[in-house]
Design a protein around this nucleic acid. Structure first.
Length: 649
RNA sequence: GCCAGCGUAGCUCAGCAGGUAGAGCGACUGACUUGUAAUCAGUAGGUCGCAGGUUCGAUUCCUGUCGCUGGCUCCA
């Protein structure tokens, strides 16, 4: 008996009944046989030891394939667990999945310290050298439950108990070690190439903060040592870009215990950048029909009772202050105030869309462990707006907001981001505002708008707010964490809570829909992101100081001030360094501060009314007439040119 | 908030068999008067996060506390 399989190049191959995928690899070639780690069979990754299936579409995977690499990482996780069990038999195992660049494993009943990591690594090396075959076994539910119960592996027992009745329960064995696992795995432990244990962290069992806290060991694993070295180099580079480090070095912001946790001070350089961005976005929004308002940072608790925040968002708010006969809270959101702005007049269908905007400062009680530099703070200013639309205007207006976001990202040179459309969970619609038709229509409109704009997006069912679907624009921080920068959320709820209406063509009251949107997001997070994205080298239009004028000698100070005055006259931001230091020293300092232009002025320049120009990231550009330089910088500012293109410097 | 680690001069860090602290950069002072990424010399600056405890003696060991960092949960 022969079975036939189809390979990825479209050719067919016959194998004897009972052959394995490993046999197939061997039949294709000795080199592939050696490098094979798993097989992709009809789209599913399987062990090489599994029997071939007649008619299957199959591809032999090596460590060159992402899935092959993941198989190795998964096996490596088992090896780590095996090493841990050898060193501390009392440890209980939870789960050990593959993640980006590596894997982790969660353990209980032992307090790990960083000093344990090298010991675990040594034991892992021993297991890899022993080259144990990794063998798959199918067990019955009873067999599995008994085995793990006897050993007190409470997490494994819980996992098995939660498996559906018809689930095939498999375990993988390597040497004395055995773990419940769906697989697939490498044929043997010796096939693991390079790995490194990175860190220890706490993690809740099943991600539930009401349950046991486990100890998680994070690790990375690669096919080649060079890949590991490259990964470590990237991590080091990311540390250099960390906005907390650069924010301090460049005098952008500070945090201190005396002021309070998560309450940043914007230092002069940071305040300058922030002010420029604030002006930019307010001007842009006003040109697009947004109306900016100012509303108070404090509000009566009653306002949040109307909005529903008091009931649902209470834990994230600072507690009320009782003054006279009022209870006041620091606002955690601006929405209720803007609802009141809407309600301040009778609105007609002709008034919509009505775009109410504000740089709204808000206070939220964030958990202390969540705070991080400017990325996560307790006081933040949101580039907020609430757009009141008729249901038939949702798609058009949503599209306009998305285009605004695109425009802003272009201006800031932000290229590395993705869109995420969040829908309600189709499996459980009960936790959302009840209005099936509205949800379906709105979700369809968001999709359509994105499609019409030709923008890619990922869909996230179950990630919607309870009051409506949304679009988030996600970026990565220097340390690789996903973060929301911009957000556009539909809201079917607040208009009801505030009983908002507009007079329709029919002369009757109708309910508007609200679009909440933050384009810059919060200035705190946005600027944190920019610091990392620019590596601190802000483009000329944003730089707190655009040109530092450096004197060669003491005689040149008067001319330096003339240059300074000329730049200032042109609306630019110059600064003079006339200290009696060597020119090289002053230039170095200007470069270290990542100032876009350093202008050297000495005898030659003073005599010819020129400046010697050095641009950050490019070096010495030679001398040019002062007027030409002003034109050049002016042009650079007006065009919002980036200082350093991605990949440069 | 939870788990773990860390907390030494303005900054980056050394000091880890317990004997009241060091370096580089920065700051200040003086000399040098400078031509494209660090001139030389000198000076000042620290209750070693804070509070207890152990000890003849604690930056060093223990406990608590505050803060920071990584992760979890949460989130702009």
């Amino acid at each position: 008996m022969q079975v036939k399989v189809r390979l990825k190049d479209g050719s067919e191959r016959a194998l004897p009944q009972g052959a394995t995928w490993a046999d197939l690899a061997a039949a294709i070639g000795p080199r592939l046989a050696k490098e094979a780690v798993a097989a992709r069979v009809n789209g599913q990754v399987a062990d090489l030891s599994r029997p071939v299936e007649d008619g299957a579409q199959v591809e032999i995977l090596t460590l060159q394939d992402p899935e092959g690499l993941d198989v190795m990482r998964h096996t490596c996780a088992h090896v780590m667990a095996q090493a841990v069990k050898r060193l501390w038999p009392e440890v209980k195992m939870a789960i050990g999945p593959v993640i980006e660049n590596g894997f982790y494993y969660d353990f209980a009943d032992h307090a790990f310290t960083p000093e344990d990591l090298p010991r675990i690594e040594e034991e892992m090396e021993r297991i890899i050298r022993a080259d144990y075959p990794v063998e798959r076994e199918v067990w019955t539910r009873e067999q599995a439950l008994n085995y793990f119960r006897e050993r007190g592996e409470r997490f494994k027992v819980e996992i098995i108990e939660d498996l559906p009745a018809d689930a095939v329960i498999t375990v993988y064995r390597q040497g004395e070690f055995l773990d419940l696992c769906r697989g697939p795995h490498l044929p043997s432990t010796g096939r693991i190439k390079v790995f490194k244990l990175m860190s220890i962290a706490g993690a809740y069992w099943r991600g539930d903060s009401s349950r046991e806290m486990l100890t998680r060991i994070y690790a990375v694993a690669f096919a080649k040592k060079q890949d590991l070295d490259e990964h470590l180099r990237r991590l080091e580079e990311a540390r250099q870009r960390d906005h907390r480090r650069l924010g301090k070095e460049l005098g952008i912001f500070m945090l201190s215990r005396e002021i309070g946790q998560g309450l940043p001070l914007w230092l002069p350089n940071g305040a300058k950048i922030r002010r420029i961005i604030e002006r930019y976005i307010v001007d842009l929004e006003e040109s697009l029909g947004y109306q900016h308002v100012y509303t108070p940072h404090l509000a009566s608790v009653e306002l949040y009772k109307i909005s529903g925040h008091w009931e649902h968002y209470h834990d994230d708010m600072y507690p009320p202050m009782q003054m006279d006969n009022e209870q006041l809270v620091l606002r955690p959101m601006n929405c209720p105030h803007h609802m009141m702005v809407y309600r301040s007049e009778l609105r007609s269908y002709r008034d919509l869309p009505l775009r109410i905007a504000e740089l709204g400062t808000m206070h939220r009680y964030e958990m202390s462990g969540a705070l991080a530099g400017l990325q996560r703070v307790r006081v933040m200013t949101l580039n907020d707006a609430h757009i009141f639309v008729r249901p038939d205007q949702i798609q058009e207006e949503f599209s306009r907001v998305v285009q605004l976001i695109q425009r802003v990202y272009r201006d800031f040179g932000i290229r590395d981001y993705y869109h995420r459309l969040s829908y309600r969970d189709p499996a459980d619609t009960t936790k959302y505002v009840q209005n099936d038709e509205m949800w379906e229509t709105a979700q369809r409109m968001l999709r359509q708008a994105m499609d019409e704009l030709g923008l890619d997006y990922v869909e996230a069912p179950g990630e919607a707010a309870f009051y409506g679907p949304k679009l988030d624009v996600q970026v990565k921080t220097a340390l690789g964490k996903d973060e929301t920068l911009s957000t556009v959320q539909l809201d079917f709820h607040l208009p009801n809570r505030f009983d908002l209406t507009y007079v329709g063509e029919d002369g009757r009251p109708h309910r508007p829909v609200v679009i909440h949107r933050g384009v810059i997001g919060t200035l705190e997070r946005f600027i944190a992101f920019l610091i990392e994205q620019y590596k601190g080298a802000f483009p000329a239009w944003l730089a707190p100081v655009q040109a530092r004028i450096v004197t060669v000698g003491a005689d040149h100070e008067p001319y330096a001030h003339e240059v300074e005055a000329a730049l200032r006259q042109a609306g630019l931001r110059p600064e003079v360094d006339a200290r009696s230091e060597k020119i090289g020293y002053k230039i170095r300092e200007a470069q270290v501060h990542k100032i876009p232009y350093t202008l050297v002025v000495g005898d030659k320049e003073a005599a010819s009314r020129t400046v010697s120009v050095r641009r950050y990231g490019q070096g010495d550009l030679g001398a040019m007439p002062l007027d030409s330089f002003i034109t050049r910088l002016r042009q650079e500012v007006d065009s919002k040119a980036l200082l350093v293109e991605p990949g440069e410097a």
